Simulated scan of single mutants.
Amino acid sequence: MGFWDWLTGRAATPQPAPVPDVDPAPTQADITASLAGVDQLIGSGTLPSVVRSRAARVTALVRKTLPRLESLGLGSYDAYSVVATATDYLPEAIGAYLRLPRDWADSRPVENGKTPLLLLIDQLDLLGATMEKIYDAANATDAAALITHGRFLQERFGHPAAPVEMTLPPPTDQHPKPLDLERP
């Protein structure tokens, strides 16, 4: 409100509320680039094999889940967790470990008697288990749709799936005659 507005009793024009700076959501290219960066770390030979295998499991699960994010609901917590694992959680866990000197990270207990290496392994196991559950949830939607469709077809056409029965002749006491292979 200016001085003239104050004197004349006019209210100042309302100012729009400032819009906070919000980082845009990661794009498919961002996610792919982040996973490629983790793949480079895995292949660099700087990580112990136990870490490489666990990190590779997490990246594989994220890659399998990404095309199915819509079935989770794009704004859902699970979809967010997949993207955050690819772009933040996994790279940060590995990066924090790699910033430490190897001999120190692999031998010095830092929390509850665990070394940074063991802490990283625990984190990767947790990420892997979580991504496995989310991947299952993403697939469960289509599996449920398949079950529902099967029930519809069953009701519609009413042909129960019956096992195929074979009818064999009754057993006899006679043995079959051997083939005479010597006759022309």
Rank of each mutant, 00 (worst) to 15 (best):
M131C: 05
G95K: 09
R54I: 08
P160C: 00
L146K: 10
A60T: 15
F157Y: 15
A93Q: 11
M166G: 05
R99G: 11
L181G: 06
A86Y: 05
A29Q: 14
G158W: 00
W104A: 13
G113P: 01
D136F: 10
T46A: 15
T87L: 02
A144F: 03
Q15P: 03
G2Q: 10
A129L: 12
P101F: 08
I147P: 00
E92N: 15
R102C: 02
P109D: 00
M166W: 09
P184R: 12
W104M: 13
L98T: 15
L41A: 14
A86Q: 04
Y135Q: 12
H159V: 00
R183F: 04
L181T: 12
I134C: 07
R151W: 07
A93P: 10
Y89A: 15
G73H: 04
E155M: 11
I121D: 05
T46M: 13
F152W: 12
Y89R: 15
E182A: 11
K64P: 01
G9M: 04
F157P: 00
I134H: 08
D173E: 12
T87D: 09
P170V: 07
A96E: 14
H159D: 03
S76C: 05
P116H: 09
L179T: 08
V62A: 14
P20E: 05
D78S: 15
I134T: 02
A17G: 02
P14T: 14
Q154L: 14
L47W: 09
V83W: 00
I134V: 07
D136I: 03
D78Q: 15
L69R: 15
P171Y: 07
S76G: 05
A29P: 00
L124A: 05
L181R: 12
R54Q: 15
H175P: 04
S107N: 15
N112A: 15
L118V: 11
V19E: 15
A84P: 00
G73C: 05
W104I: 14
Q40E: 12
Q154W: 06
P91C: 03
T13I: 11
A17P: 10
L72W: 03
R99C: 09
L127T: 06
P14Y: 01
T65I: 11
V22F: 05
L153C: 02
E111V: 12
